[in-house]
């Protein structure tokens, strides 16, 4: 193992974080997932040496790191809002780590497509550019492990999708193992090879992201991941801004994600699915799937209905609605949801 981290961290004597992480040699991206306050950032900071462990161990490449200063750890740490030095130009930020030649700064800058802003100040850059400059600065140090703390949260929604796929591609190209903290399930599915779900300072579940999303083993994980349906789908055709997908034996309409990929993870949140007894004559919702009820379960104040609609689809409805519909196992039901409720994640990034 490249990294063995058994972390126990107390604040004011109270146990706040208890987590174990193993990072194998070779390229892989591990997602630390969970709601804010779950202790994800604390785990990263402990690995980086910015927080002292209360107990436990951190062993990197066979070397005990407990008394190794942060400066001596070959880690690339990307801060949540990038922490670019405001008093230094972009080129000075990238070259900060060591006595880099202008040539090596230029090489890294062109790899990250920031070579045209080298003479600007960080405050003059867009969020996406700031992120790339911060990554360039981190990579200039030639780290053996990348720690990315909410790398996309400082970006606005429009920028996020774009930067996310760039980041996914970069992480694959670099071949450096990475730990990525996020609370966004799209980030997790797009970037992660492995995933740890944390809540209240503990790791609740670990595994490949898709498995964790589709088979949460803990109610808190299910709540944390919040997406009940994640299935494979393939685009059959695109027209007028929408895409028609084959999913299992059903066909779905989704907003066209652009690009030229055709294989996707198809994600639908249970809250977005409406159940109807018969098919409505007219509706703005693009997806009306005939199916049969497989399972009915109580999920807090809601009822979780699993439907065979050509693929396994989960709907979350109120208990009253479930009663009114007289749902029972094997009953026929229509599942209705808008094209915009279908989230597509390119498989190549997963």
């Amino acid at each position: 193992m490249l990294l063995i981290a058994d972390i126990e961290k107390r604040f004011d004597g109270r146990l706040r974080v208890e987590a174990s992480i193993r990072i194998p040699y070779g390229p892989s991206t591990t997602i630390l997932f969970g709601p804010s306050g779950a202790g994800k950032t604390t785990v990263l900071r402990c690995i980086a040496g910015l927080e002292k462990l209360s107990a436990g161990r951190i062993v990197f490449d066979g070397k005990d790191w407990v008394n190794v200063r942060p400066q001596k750890r070959p880690i690339g740490f990307l801060f949540q809002d990038y922490a670019l030095f405001p008093h230094l130009r972009v080129s000075e930020n990238i070259g900060y780590a060591a006595k880099h030649s202008a040539e090596s700064v230029n090489r890294i800058a062109s790899m990250l497509k920031v070579d045209d802003v080298l003479n600007q100040w960080p405050s003059e850059l867009s969020g996406g550019q700031q992120q790339r400059v911060a990554l360039a600065r981190v990579l200039a140090r030639k780290p053996r492990l990348l720690l990315l703390d909410e790398p996309l949260s400082a970006l606005d929604a429009a920028m996020r999708d774009h930067v996310r796929s760039e980041l996914a591609q970069l992480l694959r190209t670099l071949g450096i193992p990475a730990i990525v903290v996020t609370h966004d399930w799209v980030d997790a599915l797009t970037l992660g090879d492995q995933m740890l779900v944390m809540s209240s300072g503990r790791v609740l579940q670990a595994g490949p992201p898709r498995e964790v999303f589709t088979r949460p083993q803990h109610p808190e994980v299910a709540a944390a991941v919040g997406v009940e349906t994640v299935v494979s789908g393939r685009i059959r055709r695109r027209e007028g801004g929408t895409a028609l997908l084959d999913v299992g034996s059903a066909q779905l309409v989704a907003a066209d994600p652009g690009g030229d990929e055709s294989d996707f993870y198809v994600c639908v949140r249970g809250e977005d699915v409406t159940l109807e007894k018969g098919r409505a004559e007219q509706s703005s919702a693009r997806n009306h799937l005939r199916g049969t009820v497989l399972q009915i379960a109580i999920a807090g104040v809601l009822t979780k209905v699993t439907i065979d609609a050509g693929f396994e689809l989960v709907a979350l409805v109120t208990r009253q609605a479930a009663a009114d519909l007289q749902l029972s196992k094997g009953a026929e039901i229509f599942s209705v949801f808008k094209a915009s409720a279908v989230h597509l994640i390119p498989k190549a990034h997963g």
Binding site: A48, L50, R69, P70, Q71, K72, I75, G76, F77, F79, D81, A83, F85, P86, Y96, A97, A98, R137, V138, R141
Partner: peptide, 15 residues
Amino acid sequence: VERKYIEASWMLGVS
């Protein structure tokens, strides 16, 4: 001076 700048410097290997 914001803590993150100091920590960013440390994480870049600077004393």
